[in-house]
Amino acid sequence: MIRFLGRRVLQAIVVLFIVTIIVFVLIHLLPGGPARAELGVQATPTAVESFNKQHGFDKSLPQQYLTWLGELFRGDLGYSYKENSTVLDLLKDRLPKTALLAGVSVAIAVLIAIPLGTLQAVRRNRLTDYLATAVTFVLYSTPSFWLSLILVLFFSVKLGFLPAQAPQGSIAAVLAQPSGLVLPIATIALISVALYSRYMRSSTIDNLTQDYVRTARAKGASTARVLFGHVLRNAISPILTLLGLSLPFILSGTLITERVFNFPGMGLLFYNAAVTQDYPVLLAVTLVVAIATVLGSVLADIGYALLDPRIRHAHG
């Protein structure tokens, strides 16, 4: 187990190192160079020269990379002249809100998808399975912005039950208005349920045909004991891997959802930065998403190893 974890952490470090190189290259591919990308096209040659000297862009590329990497480790992700704030402060303000939105949405989706997928597997090729499959296929094929607009039209415009705009302000202010979070969370959760339930159904069906299930039934174990005592633990394992690997898609879904509901998170920050060509923010968000994706993959592998003893034994 220790060897397995060590190998995965080492792989993650290598991947993160490659990610930093890619982001560093992107910085130098910015239109007009890093200085004009941050200062604007109207910046004077003197200002550009001063900026390059201040940030080490007048040195060789290897020296620049080491300087930039040192600044990165110190939390210096640049300055957003469009937002008149350091990029780190922007991330500190927006990241917890997106983490709240995505975390609650995925947690709700998993809590619904696991029993739903298990029920479909147990009642495979019956009416319950057909109805659930039809609903999940419709949800999975529905674009998130379209689902958001439908929810707003029905629950906000028609019924007036819920606000059409997400709460604004700090994370405390957002939490103080839970009704404003219902529709954004529902949008991401419904689409995620469609994805996870299909995997849970397939995984459960696959495990129900395994030899250990037939052995347990031959020993007189009840259906409930077989299902919840043996099958469920093994069937959940692929969901953990899927959670780690689907993190980029979850974050892209929050981007669209945050834009529709004007939720002040990372997605809306990225969208506004793309519209205003705020390159430091765009690159910082790209770096954060890449790091989160790698960490999510590592955590998924660790969870998979903890649930499946065969992984621990195979890797020592």
Rank of each mutant, 00 (worst) to 15 (best):
A290V: 11
F154P: 11
L240D: 11
S144R: 15
L139T: 07
R312V: 06
L306P: 02
S141M: 02
L151E: 08
Q54Y: 13
T276G: 01
A221V: 15
N262G: 04
Y212F: 06
Q11R: 03
Q165S: 13
G103M: 13
A12S: 15
G303P: 05
V174Y: 07
Q210Y: 09
A99H: 08
T286E: 09
N52W: 06
S156N: 06
K53R: 09
L10I: 15
I191S: 09
I112L: 06
D206E: 13
L131Q: 11
S252E: 02
T128K: 04
A107I: 15
L90R: 10
E83G: 01
T223M: 14
Q177K: 15
P178M: 00
K219P: 06
Y199P: 01
R123F: 15
Y199D: 03
F51C: 00
S148I: 14
F263Q: 08
T67L: 15
E258S: 00
T254I: 05
A235T: 09
A235G: 08
A189R: 02
A134K: 12
T276P: 09
N207W: 06
N52Q: 00
K92E: 02
N125Y: 07
I302E: 00
F261I: 08
V275D: 13
A300E: 00
Y79S: 02
L95V: 14
P115G: 13
A305K: 06
A47K: 03
P280R: 00
V298T: 03
K92F: 09
V226M: 04
Q168V: 13
L175N: 05
V87N: 01
G220C: 12
L181Q: 08
L29M: 03
A235P: 06
T136A: 12
N234P: 04
G75T: 08
Y279E: 05
V135C: 15
A284W: 02
T20L: 05
V41N: 12
S156Y: 07
V23H: 12
D89C: 03
L175V: 01
L66P: 00
K82P: 02
F137G: 08
V135I: 15
F51R: 11
V41H: 13
A107G: 13
G244R: 11
R36L: 14
R201V: 05
R94E: 04
T204K: 08
P178A: 11
H230A: 14
F57K: 00
M200R: 14
L295N: 05
L16A: 10
T67Q: 12
K82H: 10
V285N: 03
H28Q: 06
P248K: 11
